[in-house]
Nucleic acid binder design. Sequence first.
DNA 1: ACATTAATTGTGT
DNA 2: ACACAATTAATGT
Length: 209
Amino acid sequence: MNNLNDVLQLNFETELLNEINKVGLHRSFDEGQVIIHYNDEMSYLPLVVSGAIRVFRQDNEGHELLLYYLEPGDTCSTSISCCLKSSKSLIRAEAEKKTELIFIPVQLISEWIVKYERWRTFIFENYEFRFEELLSSIDQLAFMDLPKRTLTYLRNKVIANRSPNLKSTHQEIANELNTSRVVISRILKKLEQENKIKLTRSNIEVLDF
DNA sequence: ACATTAATTGTGT
DNA sequence: ACACAATTAATGT
């Protein structure tokens, strides 16, 4: 856990690593814990060390939608923009499972961008990647029907959990795709008949990913 | 081991 | 979308 370069595949300069060790706050979150609430003041940039985080967006009526997962080596790029302007969080972040994070004070983001080449590319690449991920989320919403969205939802969850066995109820899935439980049940049933998944109570085994 | 209950899932309208 | 049926897991006796 000490050497970030080993845990993540970032080739941070040793000096940068020293700074991170000095000022970064290590925090651990249990499954289901909320890490960032809507409108939270963003004074720290979260960097994922282990586990996985899900990022939600909410409309004004309180409907939530899962945007994407953050995995080890990722950082929350909406935080990057929030941090730089030091505004409030537009998203909600929740631990998918036990997750370790390092929080970096926001003032240092831009400071380090100037000082450290590796930090610069880290921030930019992360930002770019997240941007593309967001585009693909939009594509899904706009062009894919619910059965397809459900399947990609499951596949993404498999990747984030590094396990094809997902323990979630139909109701939870319905919430995250913001639809009703009944339609999810029907879709899952069909996927099972197509041998793409296997259903048991509160558990879904994804066979096709 | 059995019964009771709550939660989850299935299905017809 | 709603209502209800069926199934499963958890818990107490």
